[in-house]
Design a protein around this nucleic acid. Structure first.
Lengths: 121, 121
DNA sequence: CAGTTGTATAACCATTTGATTATGCATTGA
DNA sequence: TCAATGCATAATCAAATGGTTATACAACTG
């Protein structure tokens, strides 16, 4: 699985509130399927299918403890997704409106602040 | 649209390589639909549908410039997604394996390193 | 061994998604 | 004004998604 495919699977897995809630629960520690299903008005098989999605995305893994299959968070793919988003940090940090950039803008009206913003730093 | 719904839409929009490529292109500056469609072996209507997905997720916006509808990146929702992921940063930073935490672990075997890790800092 | 519990899997269904082709509609330019 | 350009929209389709119920199965429990 290449990076694009991993990001596909990661973001798709995160695009569901039930699955995000499962991850939030697992952030507090391991949990069995039954414990994970508890809070939801949803059948156990439905939760199991969500767990399959999360596991295939590499976001969780399953242990074996008697007849339970406790899941735990695997944060590597979350880190990869966060790194991908970081690419765009400069676009939301609004540093393009900082004074020096405005001044540069006035000196070189042909270039957009964004374009020059990327070159800076 | 509440935060859960915004995250649903944002992550779903990001779960497609074509749409991520479109965002990457827009990070270099505005672009028309034709310019965005160029690199892809895909029909123009297909690209327009991807743009609808991105716009409904609030990730891009459309201008009007004669008969062109240039799209530009709107990074606010990316920032929100990044903030959501940051919740999990501690889980991938592996600082739970740092020496001081290991030592604390040996002194208080009943608590998981993770649980104490959350309290630290 | 038999029953119960925890979980997975199968079959099914409705909805959504991602693509296509065909077409419509402004806007530009000759 | 008329053709070309840029883009949107509609109709259609196959595949994926997210849920259900029914069932299978493995592991504890009496």
């Amino acid at each position: 699985m290449n990076q694009a495919q991993r990001l596909d699977a990661t973001f798709a897995a995160l695009a569901d509130p039930t699955r995000r809630a499962i991850l939030a629960r697992l952030a507090t520690g391991e949990a069995s399927v039954g414990e994970l299903a508890g809070p939801f008005a949803m059948s156990q098989p439905a939760i199991s299918k969500h767990l399959v999605v999360l596991e295939r995305a590499g976001l969780i893994s399953a242990g074996r403890e008697g007849q339970r299959r406790p899941r735990r968070l695997e944060a590597g793919r979350l880190a990869e997704a966060a790194r991908w988003l970081e690419q765009y940090r400069e676009f939301w940090e609004a540093r393009f409106q900082s004074l020096d950039v405005l001044l540069a803008e006035m000196q070189a009206p042909g270039l957009s602040a964004r374009a020059r913003g990327k070159k800076r730093k």
